[in-house]
């Protein structure tokens, strides 16, 4: 479970953590991805596991378009940049929820049978549900890929440089908008991956994103802004804390533990665990 939170958070870690742009519509990206996965299954009987790359590709385009249509202008704001980002993406989230209600109706949907659904696998006597296991593996792969991408490729360096100083970056011939649009696309694609996997074992409805989004923010902040590894570690900690809290407190209170741990961590280390900002 922790790795799943990590998987949702990894896309956010890129957008929010590395580019320092607040995206309050992150949960809605997840929701769209889950619907995409659902409809690919319902109409074309493509198993979510196979459609995951398709969903990721679709979300990549979607993320880049959102950046070009909305976020680009939000970042241009000279005053109150933070608030403009918060509320323009929040407005976007509302629009997306409304559109989902309009086109998909507020009904709860789920993918009844898939290759993975309901199966368990036994590892050394411990039964693990298969979809979660696959989710965990994908999550680790996604983190590794992102880490490599940020630290080893020209694009990753361009991304970090653009956040640091857009003006200087323009001087050396990097198009800020292109870099960030790609960054947003990539972030959204990662959420798409998460959504496709989660569609297998969660109900899908227009507000589904909200319940995961907050935990994703906490995960990123817990790990510290500006650190891919931090978000990964944050995801694992969040998952563990939730599991432990669920044992001690009634299940409806399980998120309290996560929140309390976040507060504890930032009180001791105001930059999160591995944050550089």
């Amino acid at each position: 479970m922790g790795l799943l939170y990590g998987l949702i958070a990894v896309g956010l870690a890129l957008i929010f953590g590395l580019m320092d742009v607040v995206n309050f519509a992150h949960g809605e990206f997840l929701m769209i991805a889950m619907y995409a996965s659902f409809f690919l299954f319902a109409f074309f009987a493509i198993d979510p596991l196979l459609s995951a790359p398709l969903v990721a590709a679709a979300l990549f385009v979607f993320g880049a378009v959102v950046y070009l249509l909305v976020v680009r202008f939000a970042m241009r704001a000279k005053a109150n940049a933070g608030m403009v980002q918060i509320f323009s993406t929040f407005g976007l989230a509302i629009v997306m929820r409304g559109l989902a209600q309009f086109f998909f109706t507020p009904d709860y949907r789920s993918i009844p049978q898939s290759w993975l659904g309901g199966k368990t696998i036994s590892v050394a006597g411990i039964f693990l549900p298969e979809p979660q296991l696959i989710g965990a593996l994908v999550s680790i792969a996604a983190f590794a890929g992102l880490y490599f991408f940020i630290h080893r490729t020209d694009f990753g360096r361009a991304l970090e440089a653009t956040r640091e100083d857009p003006g200087a970056v323009a001087l050396v011939g990097i198009d800020k908008n292109r870099v960030f649009a790609l960054g947003w696309g990539l972030g959204a694609a990662l959420v798409g991956l998460a959504g496709a996997i989660m569609a297998v074992f969660f109900y899908i409805y227009p507000d589904v994103g909200a319940s995961f989004a907050l935990i994703a923010y906490v995960t990123v902040a817990l790990g510290g802004f500006g650190s891919v590894f931090g978000a990964f570690a944050g995801g694992i900690i969040v998952g563990l804390v939730e599991a432990v809290t669920a044992l001690v407190l009634p299940p409806s209170l399980k998120s309290v533990g996560i929140y309390a741990v976040y507060l504890l961590v930032v009180f001791i280390r105001p930059r999160g665990l591995f944050g550089s900002m």
């Binding site: 909305v70 939000a74 509320f87 323009s88 929040f90 407005g91 976007l92 509302i94 629009v95």
Partner: peptide
């Protein structure tokens, strides 16, 4: 409602 919020804040 959401569209209006986006437009005004931008």
């Amino acid at each position: 409602y959401g569209t209006l919020i986006v437009l005004i804040s931008l």
